[in-house]
Measured scan of single mutants.
Amino acid sequence: TGEEYIAVGDFTAQQVGDLTFKKGEILLAIEKKPDGWWIAKDAKGNEGLVPRTYLEPYS
């Protein structure tokens, strides 16, 4: 299990392996990579890379 984050903006996948999401979606951070791209999972179970700058902790 990971930590929940809320998307603060829309993001469209730029390449294969990225995860597209919309502002307000809750994402589960699976792995926090030091380069600023995290592996996350959305509510539908889709998994991919997301930019850290689009996420804020969800409580």
Results as ranks from 00 to 15, higher is better:
residue 25 E to S: 09
residue 20 T to H: 05
residue 38 W to E: 00
residue 49 L to P: 04
residue 47 E to G: 05
residue 45 G to M: 04
residue 4 E to I: 15
residue 37 W to E: 02
residue 26 I to C: 07
residue 1 T to M: 13
residue 5 Y to L: 04
residue 51 P to R: 08
residue 39 I to C: 09
residue 29 A to I: 15
residue 32 K to M: 09
residue 42 D to I: 02
residue 19 L to H: 01
residue 2 G to L: 14
residue 56 E to P: 01
residue 26 I to F: 06
residue 36 G to Y: 05
residue 15 Q to T: 11
residue 9 G to T: 14
residue 12 T to D: 11
residue 43 A to I: 10
residue 57 P to N: 06
residue 1 T to F: 14
residue 23 K to H: 06
residue 6 I to M: 08
residue 25 E to F: 05
residue 14 Q to P: 05
residue 22 K to E: 06
residue 12 T to K: 10
residue 18 D to I: 14
residue 25 E to K: 02
residue 21 F to R: 00
residue 28 L to W: 14
residue 58 Y to R: 08
residue 59 S to Q: 12
residue 9 G to P: 01
residue 27 L to W: 01
residue 54 Y to M: 15
residue 5 Y to C: 04
residue 28 L to V: 14
residue 30 I to A: 02
residue 5 Y to E: 00
residue 21 F to M: 05
residue 56 E to C: 14
residue 36 G to M: 06
residue 10 D to N: 10
residue 8 V to G: 04
residue 43 A to K: 12
residue 30 I to F: 06
residue 31 E to H: 12
residue 31 E to R: 11
residue 30 I to G: 02
residue 53 T to D: 15
residue 7 A to N: 01
residue 27 L to Y: 02
residue 15 Q to M: 10
residue 17 G to Q: 06
residue 36 G to F: 05
residue 38 W to M: 08
residue 43 A to D: 08
residue 18 D to W: 15
residue 6 I to P: 00
residue 19 L to C: 03
residue 15 Q to L: 09
residue 5 Y to N: 00
residue 25 E to H: 07
residue 54 Y to D: 04
residue 11 F to Q: 02
residue 22 K to Q: 08
residue 30 I to V: 10
residue 22 K to M: 09
residue 35 D to F: 06
residue 21 F to N: 00
residue 56 E to Q: 12
residue 18 D to A: 13
residue 11 F to A: 01
residue 56 E to I: 14
residue 50 V to C: 06
residue 22 K to R: 12
residue 32 K to G: 04
residue 13 A to P: 06
residue 37 W to Y: 08
residue 36 G to E: 05
residue 22 K to T: 08
residue 21 F to E: 00
residue 19 L to K: 01
residue 25 E to Q: 13
residue 11 F to S: 02
residue 48 G to K: 00
residue 21 F to G: 00
residue 8 V to T: 11
residue 23 K to Y: 07
residue 8 V to N: 10
residue 33 K to L: 12
residue 44 K to T: 10
residue 56 E to A: 13
residue 26 I to V: 09
residue 29 A to T: 08
residue 44 K to P: 03
residue 17 G to D: 05
residue 45 G to S: 04
residue 7 A to F: 02
residue 3 E to M: 13
residue 23 K to F: 07
residue 15 Q to G: 11
residue 48 G to Q: 01
residue 54 Y to K: 10
residue 30 I to M: 09
residue 13 A to F: 03
residue 2 G to N: 11
residue 8 V to F: 04
residue 36 G to N: 06
residue 53 T to L: 11
residue 31 E to F: 13
residue 39 I to N: 04
residue 10 D to H: 06
residue 54 Y to N: 06
residue 45 G to E: 04
residue 22 K to C: 09
residue 17 G to P: 03
residue 46 N to Y: 08
residue 43 A to T: 12
residue 55 L to A: 01
residue 11 F to G: 01
residue 51 P to A: 06
residue 32 K to D: 03
residue 34 P to N: 12
residue 28 L to T: 12
residue 33 K to N: 12
residue 53 T to M: 13
residue 51 P to C: 14
residue 25 E to L: 03
residue 20 T to I: 03
residue 20 T to Q: 07
residue 17 G to L: 04
residue 7 A to V: 04
residue 56 E to R: 12
residue 22 K to A: 08
residue 23 K to R: 11
residue 39 I to Y: 12
residue 44 K to E: 11
residue 16 V to D: 13
residue 42 D to T: 05
residue 48 G to V: 03
residue 59 S to D: 12
residue 26 I to N: 02
residue 48 G to F: 04
residue 33 K to V: 06
residue 24 G to K: 02
residue 23 K to M: 08
residue 57 P to W: 07
residue 30 I to T: 05
residue 15 Q to R: 15
residue 38 W to V: 06
residue 39 I to P: 00
residue 40 A to P: 01
residue 44 K to R: 13
residue 29 A to Q: 03
residue 42 D to S: 06
residue 9 G to H: 15
residue 19 L to E: 00
residue 44 K to N: 13
residue 18 D to G: 15
residue 5 Y to H: 04
residue 50 V to D: 02
residue 4 E to T: 14
residue 36 G to H: 05
residue 45 G to N: 06
residue 45 G to T: 01
residue 27 L to A: 00
residue 58 Y to H: 09
residue 41 K to P: 00
residue 52 R to F: 13
residue 42 D to A: 03
residue 23 K to Q: 08
residue 41 K to D: 00
residue 49 L to R: 15
residue 6 I to R: 09
residue 54 Y to I: 08
residue 49 L to E: 05
residue 17 G to E: 05
residue 24 G to I: 01
residue 36 G to W: 04
residue 26 I to E: 01
residue 48 G to C: 04
residue 24 G to S: 04
residue 29 A to P: 06
residue 49 L to K: 13
residue 10 D to A: 07
residue 15 Q to C: 15
residue 55 L to M: 06
residue 3 E to R: 12
residue 10 D to L: 02
residue 12 T to V: 11
residue 51 P to Q: 09
residue 55 L to E: 02
residue 47 E to Q: 14
residue 50 V to M: 02
residue 52 R to Q: 13
residue 14 Q to V: 12
residue 28 L to C: 10
residue 21 F to S: 00
residue 51 P to N: 13
residue 9 G to I: 14
residue 31 E to V: 14
residue 16 V to S: 11
residue 34 P to A: 14
residue 31 E to G: 08
residue 24 G to C: 08
residue 33 K to D: 06
residue 59 S to V: 13
residue 36 G to C: 07
residue 20 T to M: 05
residue 39 I to H: 09
residue 33 K to C: 14
residue 36 G to K: 04
residue 6 I to D: 00
residue 13 A to T: 04
residue 44 K to V: 09
residue 49 L to F: 14
residue 41 K to Q: 10
residue 17 G to I: 04
residue 13 A to D: 02
residue 1 T to S: 13
residue 4 E to W: 15
residue 53 T to G: 13
residue 7 A to L: 03
residue 44 K to H: 13
residue 41 K to A: 08
residue 31 E to N: 11
residue 12 T to I: 12
residue 44 K to I: 09
residue 47 E to A: 10
residue 44 K to G: 09
residue 1 T to I: 14
residue 25 E to G: 04
residue 28 L to S: 07
residue 7 A to T: 10
residue 21 F to T: 01
residue 43 A to Q: 12
residue 48 G to Y: 03
residue 11 F to T: 01
residue 8 V to Q: 07
residue 28 L to I: 15
residue 58 Y to S: 07
residue 33 K to G: 12
residue 57 P to F: 08
residue 47 E to S: 11
residue 36 G to Q: 05
residue 27 L to F: 07
residue 10 D to T: 07
residue 54 Y to A: 09
residue 47 E to L: 14
residue 16 V to F: 11
residue 14 Q to D: 08
residue 43 A to V: 10
residue 4 E to V: 15
residue 37 W to M: 09
residue 24 G to P: 01
residue 45 G to F: 03
residue 56 E to S: 10
residue 28 L to Q: 09
residue 32 K to T: 06
residue 28 L to F: 12
residue 41 K to L: 09
residue 40 A to S: 03
residue 14 Q to L: 13
residue 34 P to M: 11
residue 40 A to C: 15
residue 35 D to N: 13
residue 59 S to E: 11
residue 42 D to P: 01
residue 10 D to Q: 04
residue 10 D to S: 10
residue 49 L to C: 12
residue 49 L to V: 09
residue 16 V to Q: 12
residue 31 E to A: 11
residue 2 G to Q: 12
residue 40 A to V: 15
residue 9 G to S: 15
residue 25 E to P: 01
residue 22 K to G: 06
residue 38 W to Q: 01
residue 11 F to P: 01
residue 10 D to V: 03
residue 6 I to Q: 06
residue 20 T to V: 04
residue 55 L to P: 02
residue 41 K to Y: 05
residue 19 L to N: 00
residue 34 P to T: 11
residue 37 W to N: 06
residue 9 G to E: 15
residue 13 A to G: 12
residue 23 K to A: 09
residue 52 R to N: 12
residue 9 G to L: 15
residue 30 I to Y: 05
residue 22 K to W: 08
residue 32 K to N: 03
residue 59 S to C: 13
residue 49 L to W: 13
residue 57 P to G: 05
residue 26 I to M: 07
residue 43 A to G: 09
residue 34 P to R: 09
residue 28 L to G: 03
residue 13 A to H: 03
residue 6 I to C: 07
residue 4 E to Y: 15
residue 3 E to N: 13
residue 50 V to A: 08
residue 47 E to D: 06
residue 6 I to N: 02
residue 41 K to S: 07
residue 20 T to P: 09
residue 38 W to Y: 06
residue 5 Y to A: 00
residue 3 E to W: 13
residue 12 T to H: 10
residue 10 D to W: 05
residue 27 L to E: 01
residue 20 T to W: 04
residue 49 L to D: 04
residue 8 V to I: 15
residue 48 G to W: 03
residue 21 F to Q: 00
residue 57 P to M: 07
residue 25 E to R: 02
residue 22 K to H: 09
residue 50 V to L: 03
residue 46 N to M: 08
residue 34 P to F: 10
residue 42 D to G: 03
residue 6 I to L: 08
residue 7 A to H: 01
residue 14 Q to F: 10
residue 45 G to L: 03
residue 7 A to Q: 01
residue 39 I to R: 12
residue 43 A to Y: 09
residue 3 E to V: 11
residue 21 F to Y: 02
residue 34 P to I: 10
residue 20 T to N: 08
residue 52 R to I: 11
residue 1 T to C: 15
residue 46 N to H: 09
residue 12 T to P: 05
residue 50 V to Y: 00
residue 53 T to I: 14
residue 31 E to P: 03
residue 31 E to T: 11
residue 25 E to T: 08
residue 58 Y to W: 12
residue 14 Q to K: 12
residue 54 Y to S: 08
residue 44 K to C: 14
residue 55 L to V: 05
residue 44 K to L: 13
residue 17 G to F: 06
residue 13 A to M: 06
residue 39 I to L: 14
residue 6 I to A: 04
residue 50 V to W: 01
residue 35 D to K: 04
residue 10 D to P: 05
residue 34 P to Y: 10
